[in-house]
Design a protein around this nucleic acid. Structure first.
Length: 264
DNA sequence: ATGGTTGTATAACAA
């Protein structure tokens, strides 16, 4: 089965309906992880996505954050929290078990700046998440961790690494915290297929013509456990979406995986 | 130059 899974920080689902629907209809992924839906569950446009054939698993909140996972098949299980300290008002994590794969959708805290308390919260988020993966899964399990991680992993992953060394999104402490979670047994599917490519997923609205000038960052990632990474056929960033009308500041990332059949 | 734009709680906001 050629199984397609995608992540997309939409920056407000209600403002992005036309853009997201056009992209979905073009690519028809089996699983879609959305971040920054920026609405409460009751205000999510349920009927539109149901009409496109998706089940909806939501963790929303008013105005900020919020994650949603759309799945063609109904999830067999849902997990809404990975640590008891998580505030119910901070909707950044939703997990579904679908098509025999654990799909972990995260919107990692942005961190504000390295000296802001939000930066420590970001590091702690990664630490707790790493502990959760170790406690919950074995390296042979079918696990995908994807979303807006708000970290560019290497100098290849942002437009001006010298200028931004130590900035939020490219601070050594964040890169180490991300790497520590990845070291559970994850493979970066984009880098697996494109080891040298300069390819971003986020272009700041506030930089004039940032997309046209390709002044971006690779912050959105699809990480997969080894049995899935071995069967990954391709991973691409749909960056043309960022150049369309009324775009999100992020572009979608999509991976195609030849899904292993469950063994009996 | 510590700027710029966008979505949403339209704010001494968050990103």
């Amino acid at each position: 089965m050629n199984w397609k899974i995608a992540t997309f920080n939409v920056n407000g689902i209600r403002a992005r309906l036309e853009s997201v629907m056009a992209w979905l209809q073009k690519h028809d992924p089996h699983v879609v992880c959305l971040q920054e839906i920026k609405c409460e569950d009751k205000n999510f446009p349920h009927s539109i996505f149901r009409q496109l054939g998706y089940n909806i698993t939501l963790r929303g909140q008013k105005a900020f954050n919020g994650v949603a996972t759309l799945t063609k098949m109904a999830p067999r299980e849902v997990i809404e929290e990975f640590a008891p300290w998580e505030s119910p008002e901070d909707a950044r994590f939703i997990v579904v078990l679908v098509d025999n794969v654990w799909v972990v959708n995260t919107y990692v805290p942005q961190g504000r700046s390295p000296h802001h308390p939000a930066f420590q919260y970001k590091l702690e988020f990664f630490r707790r998440l790493g502990t959760w993966f170790h406690s919950r899964f074995h390296e042979d399990d079918l696990v995908v961790w994807l979303g807006d991680m708000n970290v560019a992993p290497t100098p290849l992953d942002l437009f001006d690494p010298l200028r931004h060394e130590g900035s939020v999104g490219f601070h050594p402490a964040e890169r180490e915290a991300l790497q520590e979670v990845v070291s559970w047994g994850f493979t970066d599917l984009f880098r697996l297929h494109h080891p040298e490519k300069k390819q971003y997923t986020f272009w700041d609205y506030r930089l004039p013509k940032s997309f046209q000038r390709n002044l971006g960052w690779r912050l959105d990632h699809i990480f997969a456990s080894s049995p899935l990474a071995k069967n990954c056929r391709e991973c691409l960033v749909h960056d043309s979406v960022r150049g369309e009308n009324k775009p999100s500041d992020h572009a979608p990332v999509l991976a195609s995986i030849n899904l292993p059949q469950p063994s009996e």
